[in-house]
Every structure is written in C-alpha cells, then in structure tokens.
Amino acid sequence: NMECRVCGDKASGFHYGVHACEGCKGFFRRTIRMKLEYEKCERSCKIQKKNRNKCQYCRFQKCLALGMSHNAIRF
C-alpha cells in the first residue's frame, strides 16, 4: 500500500516516475499537456490530501521536486 509522494493520499501506481494518486497524476498530466502556468507562490505550501487543490503552484513545484517527469515512462 503506497502513499502518494505529492499529497499523501493512496497511490494508484507509479506515474511519471513517482508513486502518485489519480488526482496528482491527472494534475501533473494536465499541467504539462496544456502548458499551464500557475501564479507564483513564495509560501512553500504544505501539500496534503485535504488541501492539495488550494495552491497549484506549490503542488506542481512539489511534483517537479520529487522527480515527476513527462519522460519517465516505464519499460
């Protein structure tokens, strides 16, 4: 039983190089595919399941810091 490295929810698998839940997987995919840019935040918000949708900037930064990558495809 793995935990999502981004928000701590139950991970659904290994997505983009990191154990992640469906919510964070979809969030990362949409951000990359649609080339979304979020308003910069300096607060280093703590991303948890209950508040993961509050600060998209910090959520995406955490995805990147954990090594999530669009190129991380498993063979």
Rank of each mutant, 00 (worst) to 15 (best):
N51Y: 05
G23F: 12
L36D: 04
R29M: 13
A72S: 13
R52Y: 12
R29W: 15
F14Q: 10
V6N: 03
Q61T: 06
H19D: 15
Y16C: 06
Y38V: 02
R29L: 15
E39T: 11
S44K: 14
E37R: 10
R43L: 13
L66Y: 05
D9Y: 04
M2T: 08
R29T: 15
G17W: 00
L36V: 12
H70F: 13
H70C: 08
C55S: 01
M34V: 03
D9F: 06
H70D: 15
M68E: 01
N1H: 08
E22Q: 06
C63P: 02
N51G: 09
K40S: 07
G13C: 03
K50V: 09
Y16E: 12
C45M: 04
K54E: 14
E42D: 08
C58D: 02
S12A: 09
A11I: 08
Q61K: 10
N51W: 05
R29N: 14
G17K: 01
R5N: 14
N53S: 12
C58E: 00
Y38L: 04
K25G: 15
L36W: 07
A11E: 06
G8R: 05
S44Q: 14
C21Y: 03
R52H: 06
C21M: 00
S12I: 09
K62H: 04
C55K: 03
N53L: 07
C21T: 01
T31M: 04
C24L: 02
F60I: 05
R52E: 11
T31R: 02
K62S: 03
C24I: 04
C58F: 00
D9W: 03
R43V: 08
A20C: 15
E22H: 05
E3R: 06
E37Y: 06
I73G: 15
H70K: 13
F75S: 15
S44N: 14
M34S: 10
K49L: 13
A20D: 00
M68D: 02
H70S: 13
C4R: 04
G8L: 03
C24N: 03
G13W: 02
K35E: 13
V18N: 05
C55M: 01
Y16S: 09
F27Q: 00
C55H: 04
C58K: 01
E3A: 08
F75C: 15
K35W: 04
C4Q: 02
K62M: 06
M34I: 01
L36A: 09
F75K: 15
C41Y: 01
Q61R: 06
M68K: 02
L64I: 11
N71G: 11
R52Q: 11
C45G: 02
A65H: 06
R30I: 06
I73T: 15
E22P: 06
A65D: 14
R59T: 07
R43I: 05
G13Y: 05
L66Q: 13
G8H: 10
K46A: 12
K54H: 11
Y57N: 00
K62D: 03
K62C: 04
Q61S: 07
Q61G: 03
L66A: 10
F60G: 02
H19A: 14
K62I: 07
E37Q: 12
K25C: 12
C41M: 00
Y57A: 05
A11Y: 06
Q61F: 00
R5T: 12
G8W: 01
C24Q: 00
H70I: 15
F75H: 15
R5E: 14
C24K: 03
S44F: 12
E42H: 08
K54L: 11
R30K: 10
V6G: 01
T31K: 00
D9N: 09
A20P: 01
C58P: 00
R52G: 12
K10L: 12
M34K: 10
F28L: 01
K49T: 13
K54G: 10
C21P: 00
I73H: 12
R30N: 13
R74A: 14
Q61C: 03
E3Y: 08
I47V: 12
C58N: 00
M34R: 08
K35R: 11
Y38R: 01
V18P: 04
R74M: 12
H70Y: 08
G67W: 03
L36K: 08
K62E: 04
F75M: 08
A72N: 10
V6E: 04
L36T: 09
R5V: 14
C7F: 01
Y38S: 01
L36Y: 11
F28Y: 08
Y38C: 02
K10T: 13
A11C: 05
C41N: 00
L64N: 00
F60E: 00
N51D: 14
A72E: 14
L66W: 03
